[in-house]
């Protein structure tokens, strides 16, 4: 009626033009977001598989397992992360962060997990980001993992390290377990100082609680091996109680 009649006027049509532009903008943005969510889901699912592969490690098959994990990780990078990088097309890193953050966090978890098992050290953010450079069209700004996603991924890493440590103790690799314990404690301590400056620290605060639980689970496992080992220390005349752990005592007692 009235409204309909009047909408042919010039003011109304300029409004329509403008809103058509806004509509295009919103449609593009939403489509892009959706593609990125999907790319992120793929990264997540394949990173999880890498993590499982690492957990297959035993004393005997370490090299073999790690090599496969590293190969799989490289595949995640080249296939799935690179697709995310392409979908982003060098822009909107912060605007669409929520759409890809879960995938990137899981990817950080997988990559740092592999690296720690290989070298016992932390894979740095800079090193990770260096591997992302070649994925990008050189004319575009490359996706760089931001500190926040890196730290959130690191927080989850400690959960996997805890699982690993419990398994390693079973396999007699107590030294490795102690190394993990120290590593996780170091990360936890460093994070206590970093967390309050993080952009949205609430997520991270609950992760810190879980992390402390993980640390304590490892500590309790080490404690229990230790007191058990200590029990016969005098009996055995050994000065290193840590050699008396399960799996090791093929020595007759």
């Amino acid at each position: 009626t009235m409204a309909t009649e009047s909408s042919s006027s010039s003011s109304s049509s300029s409004m329509k033009d403008a809103f058509t532009k806004y509509a295009d903008y919103l449609n593009n943005q939403n489509d892009k977001r959706e593609r990125i969510v999907k790319a992120s889901r793929d990264i997540t699912i394949h990173s999880k598989k890498v993590i499982f592969q690492v957990h297959r490690m035993s004393k005997g098959n370490r090299e073999e397992v790690l090599q496969k994990a590293e190969k799989d990780l490289a595949a995640v990078t080249n296939q799935f992360v690179s697709r995310l990088v392409k979908e982003l097309g060098g822009t909107d890193f912060w605007k669409l962060r929520r759409a890809y953050s879960p995938g990137i966090q899981e990817y950080v978890e997988a990559a740092t997990f592999c690296k720690f098992c290989r070298t016992g050290t932390l894979l740095n953010l800079d090193e990770m980001n260096a591997t992302l450079f070649p994925l990008s069209d050189p004319s575009l700004e490359p996706l760089q993992i931001n500190v926040l996603d890196y730290l959130l991924g690191l927080a989850d890493l400690t959960g996997e390290l805890m699982r690993l440590a419990i398994g390693r103790i079973s396999d007699g690799e107590l030294e490795f377990a102690q190394k993990i314990c120290k590593f996780v404690r170091d990360i936890y301590r460093e994070l206590t100082l970093v967390v309050p400056s993080m952009d949205d620290s609430n997520d991270m605060k609950t992760k810190m609680d879980t992390m402390l639980q993980s640390v304590m689970k490892i500590e309790n496992a080490c404690f229990s091996v230790h007191v058990r080992g200590s029990e016969y220390m005098p009996l055995l005349g050994s000065e290193d109680p840590t050699s008396f752990i399960l799996g090791v005592p093929n020595v007759d007692i």
Binding site: K182, Y188, R189, T192, L193, P196, E219
Partner: peptide
């Protein structure tokens, strides 16, 4: 005060090592 307690906390964590 809060940021001072964080420093203290971080240092005291070493007691476990």
């Amino acid at each position: 005060i809060e940021s001072t307690t964080r420093l203290i906390q971080a240092s005291l964590l070493l007691v476990h090592q």
